[in-house]
Design a protein around this nucleic acid. Structure first.
Length: 491
RNA sequence: GGCCCCAUCGUCUAACGGUUAGGACAUCGGCCUCUCACGUCGGUAAUACGGGUUCAAAUCCCGUUGGGGUCACCA
């Protein structure tokens, strides 16, 4: 019997969570998931979602990348309460604008004997490592060259890094909100560098100083950061700060179970940059649904609106095992979201994609809504929907040669002319009215719709798969339908 | 290799010591049907292995195996 616990979301202090991408490319689908879980928690609890740009890797960081990532975040609707553009009381929100802060904290740690200057050069350390027998090189750790030195030993003017003086014995344990207790022996934590010789902090230090000064109460991120957590806890303690809560999320892997690098994933037909999903016509809520449901569940429910996600999200139902991206399921989820859209909304969303498949019509073209309606339940993504719609708007449709060969026989062509004549005389030119008239003609000729449907479909759409025949005719209109039928018959 | 983590259908997951191990995607078959979809009905399909603990183990413990993460003056 489960002991009822008060809903944590409503009994705790308002949490402050954050998403801290480094601007070295695009928004990774896995990063989007991390951002989503943080955002959901903030929105559910009335807490604060902070966006911070970790741009300390000057080699790879670009403004363009920052722009792309922010764009993707906005497209997903993951709005931030503090961060770039919106500002906030704990800014700046770009790490490269906070250098003095890291410097001050690092110097303080040195002054307190909790960190130290290390003048050993990289070459010097590499040489030491190279001297080791092959087998021991993997486990090589910094050999404490400068750990016990004092200010008197400093080399004025020479470059140095600042290393953290990690405890030699004991262990650090923390209770992860997803994984539970995780314990790491200090023997596996070396005197890691916290400040580079150029005065720029390294990830573990910059993140901790920022999380402390930004008042972050819960750090949720991918499980690849579990390994960093003990180091960071040591840093919080050295800084005299309150250690936040941690929640790690299992990894999203490729279909064959590998780390989702862009190259590897794309080989398996999986898109990694969020912008690709936008380009292919995912509804943002559909993508959010798929990645939320990945590693998290709420009973048997599969489809969630954004508001349901916010209402139902919790850490207790986050799983612990890494998962593999399932493209077919992701497409199904996407389709389910499109299916639930009102026809007008769906049509408006498809519209921009028509241009990308070469259809230029006005946004208020009267054919748009009825045409969109016919493909709504047949499309996984908006781009797919647009592709299924092109034949409606083409002056001259391209007839699939194989389809012509198979279906446009002489007998079929005669039928097409006859159907064209029937259509020319239909009074009630609606899907139902057209159906009645054509059925009557079929009865009169003792024909089955089976034998005339495919030829007519090819004539009207150019292809062998399309929405229902009478729907298509109704959308095309009398004149265009008759024209296409006769044109195909005479071709 | 060291350290950390993980292990239920092909895939995402439910299960809080007692269930005929449930759902979804995929797959297979039926229905619907002018094609493709949608919809609908049904089937196949899982507790990695070995030891404990317990009246009872997918569930707790140990080990094995397998997988992932991580070992930078990247993040």
């Amino acid at each position: 019997m489960r002991v009822p616990v008060p809903d944590e979301a409503f009994t705790m202090e308002k949490p402050r969570v954050r998403f801290a991408p480094s601007p070295t490319g695009y928004l990774h689908i896995g990063g989007a998931r991390t951002a989503l879980f943080n955002w959901l928690w903030a929105r559910k609890t009335g807490g604060t979602f902070v966006l911070r740009v970790e741009d300390t890797d000057q080699e790879r960081s670009t403004d363009e990348s920052t722009r792309v990532i922010l764009d993707s975040m906005r497209w997903l609707g993951l709005d931030w309460d503090e961060g770039p553009d919106v500002g906030g009381p704990h800014g700046p929100y770009f790490q490269m604008q906070r250098l003095a802060l890291y410097r001050a904290h690092a110097d303080r740690l040195v002054a307190e004997g909790k960190a130290y200057r290390c003048y050993a050069t990289r070459e010097e350390i590499d040489a030491l490592r190279a001297k080791l027998p092959e087998k021991k090189r993997d486990g090589f750790v910094y050999p404490h060259l400068w750990r016990e030195k004092t200010e008197a030993d400093w080399l004025p003017g020479a470059p140095y890094v600042i290393r953290f003086k990690s405890p030699l014995v004991g262990a650090t344990e923390f209770i992860d909100k997803v994984f539970g207790a995780i314990k790491t022996p200090h023997s596996s934590i070396d005197d890691f560098v916290i400040m580079r010789s150029d005065g720029v902090p390294l990830y573990n230090f910059g993140a901790v100083v920022d999380d402390v000064t930004m008042g972050i109460t819960l750090v949720a991120r991918g499980s690849d950061h579990i390994i960093n957590t003990p180091k960071q806890i040591l840093l919080y303690e050295a800084l005299g700060a309150v250690v936040p809560e941690f929640a790690h999320l299992p990894m999203m892997l490729t279909p064959d179970g590998k780390k989702m690098s862009k190259r590897l994933a794309e080989q398996q037909g999986i898109d990694v940059p969020v912008e690709k999903y936008r380009e292919k016509g995912w509804a943002p809520d559909g993508l959010l649904n798929y990645i939320a449901r990945f590693g998290w569940s709420a009973g048997d429910q599969e489809i969630f609106s954004r508001d349901e996600l916010i209402a139902k999200f919790d850490w207790a139902h986050c799983g612990t095992n890494d998962g593999r991206y399932d493209k077919k399921k992701s497409l199904w989820v996407s389709g389910e979201h499109l299916k639930r859209l009102a026809d007008e909304d769906f049509a408006a969303r498809v519209y921009p994609f028509l241009a990308t498949v070469g259809v230029t019509i006005a946004q208020d073209d009267p054919r748009l809504l009825p045409a969109a309606r016919t493909v709504k339940t047949r499309s996984a993504r908006l781009l797919d929907a647009a592709e299924s719609m092109v034949f409606y708007f083409q002056e001259t449709i391209a007839l699939d040669p194989a389809a012509v060969e198979k279906f446009l026989t002489n007998e079929a062509r005669a039928n097409l002319r006859a159907i064209a004549d029937v259509l020319a005389g239909v009074k009630d030119f609606t899907e139902a009215g057209i159906g009645v008239a054509v059925e009557a003609w079929l009865v009169e000729r003792s024909l089955e719709i089976k034998v005339v449907a495919q030829p007519a479909r090819v004539a009207l759409t150019g292809r062998t798969a399309s929405p229902g025949l009478f729907e298509v005719i109704a959308v095309l209109g009398r004149d265009e339908s008759v024209r296409r039928l006769r044109s195909a018959a005479d071709a």
